[in-house]
Amino acid sequence: MDKRLFWSIQQLSGRFFLVDQFMILLSKRARYVYMFVVLLKWILDGPQRRTARSATLSIIVAWLIDFVLRRLCFKARPFMKQKVGILIPTKADSSFPSKHTLLAFAVSTAIFLRNRVWGRILSYLSGLIGLSRVWVGHHYPSDIVFSALIGAMTGMVVHQKTSHCKEADS
């Protein structure tokens, strides 16, 4: 099922120039949107700064999870096992987890739990980032789904812990 879904997406890749360019843009540059939102919230005071702290901590924890998972369970990227048209070059490291997707969902979930509007926008963007990673030939759909779940859980746990610490300080 995973490979079948991968190939159904992959067969569209390289056929539509504008869609390809949009997917490449998402895959390479969407992280700057998250950085901008977190930085903007950090500059603002009060609850906005707490949101930025939660999002930043979510990034750190998600990055550590990515670091550990890549060393524990290697999964060959699609282009390493078969001929796949990749739109942008990448390292021949583990396909799971998708660091882009993991980090995007960790941040968007952390923000969503404190600010529904910004969180919803970033969650949609996170989904598009995940799709772009399959589109450019770097990941299988299962890599994206599980990375999104781990990222979302990371954002939820960090939110819960930071909310609990805030209550204890009060």
Results as ranks from 00 to 15, higher is better:
K3S: 13
K3N: 14
F6Q: 08
W7A: 12
S8D: 09
Q10W: 05
Q10E: 11
G14D: 10
G14Q: 10
G14H: 02
G14Y: 08
R15Y: 09
F16G: 03
D20M: 08
Q21W: 10
Q21I: 06
F22Q: 06
F22L: 14
L25M: 14
L26Q: 02
L26V: 04
S27I: 02
S27T: 15
R29F: 13
A30Y: 04
R31T: 00
V33Q: 04
Y34M: 10
F36N: 01
V37Q: 05
L39A: 15
L39G: 13
K41Y: 15
W42D: 06
D45M: 07
R49Y: 01
R50P: 05
T51C: 12
A52H: 02
T56K: 07
T56F: 02
L57Q: 05
L57S: 08
I60D: 02
I60T: 10
I60L: 15
V61I: 15
V61C: 08
V61N: 01
V61D: 06
A62R: 09
W63E: 14
V68E: 04
V68F: 15
R70T: 14
R71H: 15
R71C: 04
C73S: 12
F74H: 14
F74L: 08
K75Y: 12
K75P: 03
A76W: 00
A76V: 02
R77N: 09
R77G: 00
Q82C: 05
I86V: 15
L87D: 04
P89I: 01
P89L: 09
T90I: 02
T90G: 13
K91W: 08
K91Q: 13
A92H: 11
D93E: 14
S95P: 09
F96M: 05
P97V: 10
P97I: 09
S98H: 01
K99H: 11
H100F: 07
L103N: 13
A104F: 14
A106L: 03
A110S: 15
I111F: 03
F112W: 14
F112H: 08
R114I: 00
R114F: 06
R114W: 03
N115E: 15
R116M: 07
G119L: 07
G119P: 08
G119Q: 00
R120H: 08
R120M: 11
I121Q: 10
I121R: 12
L122D: 06
Y124E: 04
Y124C: 11
L125K: 10
L125W: 00
G127S: 07
G127E: 01
L128T: 07
L128K: 03
L128V: 01
I129H: 06
I129Q: 10
G130Q: 00
V134Q: 05
V134C: 01
G137C: 03
H138W: 06
H139E: 01
Y140N: 05
P141R: 02
S142A: 11
S142H: 09
D143G: 02
D143L: 01
F146P: 02
S147D: 07
L149V: 15
L149D: 09
T154I: 04
T154Y: 06
M156P: 03
M156V: 14
V157N: 09
V157Y: 04
V157E: 01
V157T: 13
H159C: 00
H159V: 10
Q160E: 09
T162E: 12
E167K: 14
D169G: 02
